[in-house]
């Protein structure tokens, strides 16, 4: 018997006597709930939030809402962050964009794949995020301190912002070289104050409720905006 077979036999003999407990449904449900507190995605926000508008002057937004739709998030989207907006980052397909603290994302023509260290450890895995082809909209996901936005539509995005608890943050836009079918972006920012601290189990609503996201085109034109709701 060679060493490989010896090890195989020994491992099987060892584990033959090991009887795992029952599939722990309750414990798993608790874990999933705990995990969901740290990872929330708002993916149902679509073209209803797409508007047209123009930023006027230094920091004030005037919205000229298309087709008379509800002004989702208009009031809280009216102030731009201080400081210089981050430049658009252009990447190749599959190239990793570092998000800080070891997290990264990579883009393909139809998917954003995000690797959060806490979820994937040192492995190469990442979680995909995509949307229906041909749609226009803006949405947001949050995981472990990182907000990611995705504006998908034909227009070219110049700037992205999110507003959390009345503070607006620049989001670093990232695009795939050679395509304008979507723009993603990332920023590290705190969760809304209502989401911090102890929560009911399970929480009745998403901890990223009330966050306003805006995509601006050239000249400050508002391409899309929305405010997250459960």
């Amino acid at each position: 018997m060679d060493t490989e077979d010896m090890v195989r036999e020994a491992l099987r003999a060892e584990l033959a006597a090991v009887e795992p407990g029952e599939w722990p449904v309750g414990a798993m449900q608790d874990r999933v709930r705990r995990r969901q507190r740290g990872r929330w995605a708002v993916r149902a926000v679509t073209s209803a939030a797409v508007v047209t508008g123009v930023v006027l002057g230094a920091g004030m937004l005037s919205t000229g809402w298309g087709s008379g739709r509800e002004q989702v998030g208009a009031a809280s989207a009216s102030v731009l962050p201080a400081g210089t907006p981050p430049a658009v980052v252009v990447v190749r397909p599959g190239q990793r964009v570092q998000l800080g603290q070891g997290d990264w994302m990579s883009l393909t023509s139809d998917e954003i794949c995000t690797h959060i260290v806490d979820a994937y450890g040192g492995g190469p895995g990442c979680g995909g995020w995509s949307w229906a082809a041909g749609t226009t909209g803006i949405n947001l996901q949050y995981e472990d301190g990182v907000y990611q936005l995705a504006y998908y539509g034909s227009e070219q995005v110049a700037r992205l912002t999110i507003e959390v608890d009345g503070t607006t943050y620049w989001v670093t836009p990232v695009v795939l070289a050679g395509t304008h079918s979507y723009t993603t972006g990332y920023v590290r920012a705190p969760l809304p104050s209502a989401a911090r601290g102890p929560q009911k189990n399970p929480p009745k609503k998403s901890p990223i409720d009330g966050i306003t996201m805006v995509a601006y085109g050239a000249g400050g034109k508002v391409l899309a905006t929305s405010t997250t709701t459960s």
Partner: peptide, 16 residues
């Protein structure tokens, strides 16, 4: 592992 007593009960050990 081959050198470990844990595998002493598994004969052979020619090993290679």
């Amino acid at each position: 592992l081959r050198a470990h007593p844990a595998l002493a009960g598994y004969s052979g050990g020619t090993g290679l």
